[in-house]
Design a protein around this nucleic acid. Structure first.
Lengths: 341, 341
DNA sequence: GTTAGCACTCTCAGCCCAGGAGTGCTAAAG
DNA sequence: CTTTAGCACTCCTGGGCTGAGAGTGCTAAC
């Protein structure tokens, strides 16, 4: 289904013009603004052909053309120009990595902010999964009477804390328990944790079964942490500027879908389109709320764990720029997180 | 400026009818639906008077009346009925406090969610300030080579962690440093921290100045934590259903004002209206973005620190219910947080 | 003081119409 | 055979008009 050269150039022109203006594109504009060296009439013929083959749509019988999903697909797969980032752009993104990293979570949140602000689309990061998680540290710290603070660090650098109830104990005793926990449970795969915990109880900690139970329970709950808690989303407001969201109800549906129904997780899960970064366009994902939206996303790695970073924008988003930015972060985040460990 | 009894009843009827329907209220509806025992004509006369005295407005010469800000004010101050919460409502709110508290921050986030979901308005919680903060715990835990995890707990129960760089040290050594930090810096007022840190350096920790500097720096940064990081907001979507937000631009302005410009902090700071809970209505806060919104908020306490919890809804929100809910949380949160310590 | 009646005002939805943008087709030109 | 000019046609858009409906304010009667 390869298009001849001129058809391809017309399609590309229509897509780019439409992306820029948001309006249906007429033959005159193409003839005038894109130097194809032919008259509007010829363009019209080409556009009619492109419509027949499904690359263009017409909102109504007599107005300009608009790219169909298939048209966008061809555009991003074959027609769109490669675009790198300028020195300035890179410099401004690099600022993020210079700032003091407090902890992984706030760093990822900050990343979302930067991504969404520089693109003016909705940005998201799905934190590294903990598929094969082990805990590099498990500590118990004295808090107030009857309470202790459990601190664990996952192998991808997430710090999780939890207050647990403990019988009254001296600081020294808490420390002993903490040491035991570290000895038995740190760097142990989750599946082996109950086993190790039993060992621990039998050998030296029978008195502390209450504590150990809570610890095991918490380790499990972190492991099972729903994707929602690993997902950071920001810049939804940016979508409101887009003409396809003049309608409040649509905005509401979209925000609800993202906030309550885990739309983004759903989309990420649903298909792992290959392509790097992966791009999914409008109606390709049959969810109604996103039929005017496209998603560009890539993967990054923290150790063996994989995270995702991406953008959600209008179907007529700036694909070359979005791709460049996602690519940048794929590489840069992996680098940064590996240094952190 | 007390109104005579019938005027008060007319005003109340207009407010309640308008809150229910969102439309300008005519004299006929009032006469029919609220049993005042007089004819529409009489109501018309009363409404004309109420308009003269500034309690009602007319969108245009010949349509029904709408409460003015002053009208709402009188309504919430004197006319509106007290309303408690039903057993069912209380039961469903209490669920929140039964769930396992992981840590204070996620608990407060959960609270916001509950508040906004049960009211269908935007809900927010401003976490307890740390005006007179001390750190009840300061610990250092071994992480990977060259890194250690600093864990501190504020006196209101916030746990903050931070990875810092350390020279290569044995676990034992890290523990010694951690103990020192606890001894010198825990339960010390922030203003005295630099002093204590100096003591520590002179007396036993001169080798660790690099670490101590980072700790002091981090303590300060937590102290200075911008209000934005203590503020949890949720349920903005709920506002989109309101007729006053048919217009996307307005929605956008509002979301931007909340997200980037700290609108809520600004409003909370700007006036500490007395009243319990405090209610601020539309144009009373001159910010343009909220001229159709009202805010109902109250205080809760965690030790000596004060937090705030509230709702942002359309000016025609259900005040009796909102007040009841905020009251409930004022009391209940204070209780819960004091138990936690 | 209250009410019925009535003229008046203003909004809103629907309709029509003219203007404009763009198409598809046809026929002529290259 | 491809390209282009010309032209009739379609459809959207915005402005202006109109009639229905809702509500008011005033006046005069109760």
């Amino acid at each position: 289904m390869a298009l001849d050269d001129r058809k391809a150039r017309v399609l590309r022109a229509v897509v780019e013009e439409h992306i820029e203006t948001g309006l249906p594109v007429g033959s005159r504009v193409i003839a005038r603004r894109y130097s194809l060296g032919v008259s509007p009439a010829t363009i019209r013929n080409e556009m009619a052909d492109l419509e027949d083959t499904g690359y263009l749509d017409k909102p109504h019988t007599s107005s300009g053309r608009v790219p169909s999903d298939r048209g966008y697909r061809l555009y991003v797969d074959e027609l769109m120009p490669e675009r790198g980032l300028s020195q300035d752009e890179i410099a401004s993104l690099e600022l993020l990595f210079r700032s003091k990293a407090k902890d992984v979570v706030s760093f990822l949140k900050e990343t979302v902010k930067v991504v969404s602000e520089t693109t003016n689309y909705l940005g998201f990061v799905l934190g590294p999964d903990s598929g094969s998680v082990t805990y590099t540290a498990v500590h118990l710290l004295p808090a107030s009477v009857g309470k202790a603070l459990l601190v664990i660090v996952t192998d991808v650098g997430f710090v999780e804390t939890c207050l647990i109830e403990v019988p009254p104990m001296s600081t020294e005793e808490i420390r002993r328990v903490s040491d035991m926990l570290t000895r038995y449970l740190a760097n142990v795969e989750l599946s082996k944790v109950p086993d190790r915990a039993n060992h621990m109880l039998h050998e030296e900690a029978s008195r502390y079964s209450e504590i150990v139970d809570q610890v095991v329970e918490f380790l499990r709950s972190v492991q099972l942490m729903p994707e929602g808690e690993r997902l950071f989303v920001g810049g939804a407001v940016n979508l409101l500027g887009q003409p396809e969201f003049r309608d409040v109800d649509r905005v509401k549906d979209l925000l609800l879908a993202i906030e309550s129904e885990g739309l983004i997780q759903y989309l990420l899960e649903r298909e792992s389109r290959s392509g790097n970064p992966a791009i999914s366009i409008g109606g390709e994902n049959e969810s109604d709320a996103v039929k005017d939206l496209s998603m560009v996303y890539g993967r990054f790695f923290a150790g063996r764990s994989e995270g995702k970073i991406g953008l959600l924008g209008p179907k007529r988003m700036d694909y070359p720029k979005s791709v460049a930015i996602v690519r940048f972060f794929e590489r840069r985040l992996s680098l940064f997180l590996s240094q952190l460990q």
